[in-house]
């Protein structure tokens, strides 16, 4: 328990060790610690950002997909509509054509019938005239009765 110069020796060595620690030990270690802390913080932040970006990209992909689907749906329905239209028009045209053909055919038929009727009428007239002629040959003078006969043929 004697106090002696050891006291001063201790104080001096203490001061030297503290100075050494302050100068050569503390700063590099703290610098490394702080740099690592900053690195970890950066890493975490960029991971967070990456996650965020991934989420955004996924959202965009979904949007694009649904957009595409919608467009495809649109295209299909448009095509359907267009096909329906074309179909309808073709049908209408066909119906028109049919009506036209029928009309022209019936007109032709009518005409032919009229012609046939005309011919028949004329033939019936002349046949009737011939028949009448032959019947009347002996009784009627052809000349005098021609007008009557012609009138008759016209009325037929």
């Amino acid at each position: 328990m004697n106090m002696n110069l050891t006291l001063l020796g201790q104080a001096i060595s203490f001061a030297i060790f503290v100075w050494f620690c302050l100068k050569y030990v503390w700063p590099p270690i703290i610098a490394a610690l702080e740099a690592r802390e900053a690195q970890i913080a950066d890493g975490l932040a960029s991971a967070e950002q990456g996650k965020h970006e991934l989420e955004n990209a996924e959202k965009r992909v979904k949007e694009i997909l649904s957009d595409g689907k919608e467009k495809a749906q649109d295209l299909v329905s448009q095509a359907q509509k267009r096909a329906d239209e074309i179909h309808e028009r073709a049908k209408n045209e066909a119906v028109d054509e049919k009506v036209k053909i029928i009309a022209s055919a019936s007109a032709e038929i009518e005409q032919e019938r009229n012609q046939a009727l005309d011919g028949l009428r004329k033939q019936v007239g002349s046949l009737a005239l011939q028949g009448a002629e032959q019947i009347l040959m002996r009784e009627i003078d052809e000349k005098s009765h021609r007008d009557v006969l012609n009138k008759l043929a016209g009325a037929l």
């Binding site: 004697n2 106090m3 002696n4 050891t6 006291l7 001063l8 020796g9 201790q10 104080a11 203490f14 001061a15």
Partner: peptide, 9 residues
């Protein structure tokens, strides 16, 4: 001496 050397510093 050692402990006083430090504590007095």
């Amino acid at each position: 001496n050692a402990t006083f050397g430090m504590s007095l510093s």
